[in-house]
Design a binder for these strands. Sequence first.
DNA 1: CGGCGCGGCGCC
DNA 2: AAAGGGCGCCGCGCCG
Length: 586
Amino acid sequence: MDGVHIAIGPGDDGRIVLVDPADPAAPLAVVDPEGLAGAVAELEPRSPRWVWSSTRSWYPRLLDAGARVERCDDLALGAAILDHSADTAAARAADGDESPAWLERLRQAALDPVAPGAASETAALFELGDFSHADESAGHPVAEPGIGEVLAEHARQQRLAAASARPRAMRLLLAAESAGALIGAELHAAGLPWSRAVHERVLEEELGARPRAGAKPARMESLAAEVRLALDAATVNLDSQVDLLRALRLAGIQVDSTSRWELREHDHPAIEPLVAYKKLARLASANGWSWLDEWIVDGRFRPDYVPGGTATGRWATSGGGALQLPKLVRRAVVADEGWTLVVADAAQLEPRVLAALAHDERMAEAARGRDIYRGIVDAGVVETRDQAKVALLGAMYGATTGDSGRLVPRLARAYPKAMALVDRAAAQGERGGVVTTNLGRSSPMPPETWRLAQQRASQPDASAIDERRARSVARDWGRFTRNFVVQGSAAEWALCWMAGLRTRLARFEPAGRAASRSGPVFEAVPHLVYFLHDEIIVHTPAEHADAVGAAVEQSAAEAGRMLFGDFAIDFPLDLSVVDSYALADA
DNA sequence: CGGCGCGGCGCC
DNA sequence: AAAGGGCGCCGCGCCG
């Protein structure tokens, strides 16, 4: 089904071997590291699936050299799935081979932060031509496995996928995960177009002029003075939680924390300027001038994406806070001249995924069209859209108290299949079991604290406190597994969506008129520049915007079919074509 | 001095 | 407004 594979890895002499795993005795090429990109480009027209230890180790250098690949098999990411999936448990027990140790080293390296703009940034994961003498203790570079080890691991993973409980689903998951790895590297290489001027304007509007190094912005200083006056606390340090809490209490404001939502419940002249101060402090420290200096290079934001970086399969990022860009600074995401942004997000992705996972036809019916919450109201389950929303989120997150907890039972009566699915997942987690996503990613085992708490509660002399504690810890883990199946399956949908879109974008003809500043691989073609769980941005020559929008829609529909077959569930998108991210309306 | 846990808060 | 799940980053303050 899969066509030709070509594995890449260092040979004994440090040169790089490119070889078809089906014909390991006859390498297709043996090249010096400098010759790798050329060799890959030469073989790429055969549409191979490139097999390598990890995309992070190999692909950035290829992109730097102008070589893009269509498909790969990322062994580090594949092992993370295969070695823990319930669907491969029997296959692993039957298979003699262990997961090799080098995979764990690569996994650790993937989580190490890489300094932005560092000269050797993209090559930092290992030294070219020095695979065998890598110094592990220094973090980088990491010892690369030799070509023989790569071939052996590839064979092991093929065996496990073939012998898994659902081979088709597992192969799709592995392919999607690997496509995600390619996309993560390409997002970094292309970068998110970023206007320093617009960002500076936002900062000046909010904070005032850039302060000298070490000083606080003027707007923050004046708000701090107001707070100190209102609290009658001339020296309180607003950045110190301990200090601030004491001052608030001395001023008669009985709070247990300094969080915004708790402050807002009190009526006192200090509250408004304090909340305003906190908002500005957050902006200044997270996305202020020093963030700009550190992260925006040549008009691009290049965060370090970590595909598969979380337990559920959602991505993580390391450095730059790319997945937490405040709405306020999204104004600075601006397309190049002659280019535009196609911004799309999947509307209410997780409830729709839940309906499909559970084959809950009534919930799928409510999800028909644009707004599932409105659909739930129209079905007479609750009175208002807001009630539908908190009830549904409560069902997926395991809320037991408050408005949400009270509304969940009504949802359960109307949508018993969906509710049963998340309740089963929660029950499984509470007793320490594992749950599995739509395609086969399994949840981790519960933490040590879970085991200890249950053990203590089962002793003959266990106290009521021990038992309460054990139930509480169990329920915590149950909420995690409850959410895991939905969040993890939604992450799979997003990967399939994005992978399909990437393939479609690769077929666009280069645009003649305007080159972007996205580097040699992307300067003339539409390309992904951002991904945020259920949202993407494509940077495209303006003339292709409509066609890109169509490709985004087609990819979403295709992802739904790939994951859920004939089950009738819509995945509508909110899609806009805009010059600035802030103008996209979700 | 660096490492680390915590509170708080940004995003989904 | 949060709540209930997943994250990363910041500053603070404690520790060795």
